[in-house]
Design a protein around this nucleic acid. Structure first.
Lengths: 250, 250
DNA sequence: AATTATAACTTGTATATACAACTAAAATAG
DNA sequence: CTATTTTAGTTGTATATACAAGTTATAATT
């Protein structure tokens, strides 16, 4: 029976040296001792200070640079980076994940699944020719609370490039979400999103069971695989029932 | 006069070896030769294949792991990571940046700047006590195209924690944006956002010069510095004039 | 047959070394 | 004083080596 480190519960865990150096540097910055743009010790200085080799000190500086904490320029030195204060990032998840993250139950109802001729707008968005056939699906997503209250939370209108996903029509989108299916068929490599507020059209109002002209959040999503644009989706949700939340450190 | 590498324009630029290995690995993955979860060559195998030392091969694998392309487990090996298909990130920028990124001109009009007593909701959001004084500002942001057409694009309603930014009242928010001022006074470390679609209230409709009940995008933003919650802002924009765009690779 | 131990392989940490490439300040030559 | 060269310091790339630590399949033992 071998003894593994994990078995020795009371063992004093010592962080690797390069981690210790990283922590030291972060402390200096967080405490304000090292201001933005100020020079931090060189690899050799850190190596001596911590009695490690230059390569170990280097690794600490390197990783903090990749994390955006430091900035390095060859020949000049290493400096504390400026904080990215201009932008933050908002996470956009698919509706099924969003709902299950709230411990609610998601289910979907397939309304339409058919073949259309691409309009000019759709053709451009999918990078195909006008008049080419495209797959078009409409799916209603419902959220059911644990109390059993169920409401329509999102209408998905999706155009799919048939060249990249030929079997899309055979799917039952009440069972598998488009996102799941497309991900499995053509690994998504990229996506763009646009978010705007729109007033509910008669069709949307009817499907989502809301009043006409009620404000809705509309997300337009284009997804790419390595072979091209896979699909273009318009996701419309009632403004009072759906909300995008984001939290990220600068 | 020294000759520097940069001077030799016609010099054949050779990428460092670890970069070449990274590129090779990425190619294999992008072309589909190496599928998700499949094992990639070990450090030693790559080292032999490219006639480099193990440390060099290691660096390629290491950096791709940090970038999320590969996954490594000690003792087992290195594997192609699953694509993060569940979430994407949307960048939220402040309105002034957004407008100037479109090569349009931003200007702001300060409508209100005063002291209020914190309501219960505001007190909770700013992490202060109900009834404590808070600074409250209303600022209208205008976008002017290069043709000289100007329209109100966002109403900013902002509550500021006076303990962290005592001189906020002395500012002229037509000149400096709240974001600029707050960033300079208390470096922002973190922010949360919520986005929803709302119908224009009479007040909002009047200020933004839109119709009552018109759909608007509303962003609620809370910003932190290291000392606590700095401010809570409600940013309301007409749905047809403002749009959030995001683009990020998975 | 099931368990245990071994061995082979993998990644992780750390060091020592060498040289290349770049920067900025000091020394030098005009 | 100015322009140039040198020099010292810094980061970047690359190698060779050693051992630690975790995984997995195989071999040995019970």
């Amino acid at each position: 029976m071998y003894i593994q480190v994990n078995d020795l519960v009371c063992m004093v865990m010592v962080a690797p040296k390069f981690i210790q150096i990283k922590q030291y540097i972060c402390q200096q910055i967080e405490s304000g001792k090292w201001q933005q743009h100020s020079k931090v010790p060189s690899e050799n200085e850190l190596a001596e200070q911590f009695s490690v080799s230059r390569m170990t000190a280097r690794r600490a500086l390197q990783e903090l640079t990749e994390q955006g904490v430091l900035v390095r320029t060859q020949g000049a030195g290493t400096f504390v980076a400026t904080f990215k204060s201009q932008s933050s990032l908002l996470e956009i998840r698919n509706i099924a994940d969003e709902i299950s993250a709230r411990n609610h139950i998601h289910h979907a109802k397939q309304i339409t699944l058919s073949v259309l001729q691409a309009s000019e707008e759709i053709a451009i968005l999918l990078n195909i020719n006008k008049g080419d056939k495209v797959f078009y699906a409409e799916v209603l997503h419902y959220e059911t609370t644990q109390l059993g209250i169920s409401e329509a939370i999102q209408l998905e209108q999706r155009y799919v490039n048939p060249k990249l996903v030929p079997e899309y029509l055979q799917q039952d989108l009440s069972v598998i979400t488009s996102h799941e299916y497309l991900s499995s068929k053509a690994p998504l490599t990229e996506a763009t999103h646009e978010i705007e507020a729109v007033a509910a059209s008669p069709k949307i109002a009817k499907l989502l069971a809301i009043f006409l002209q009620q404000p809705c959040l509309q997300i337009k999503r284009r997804t790419w695989s390595s072979k091209g644009v896979v699909s273009f989706a318009i996701l419309t949700s009632p403004g009072d029932k759906y909300r995008l939340g984001g939290h990220l450190t600068f």
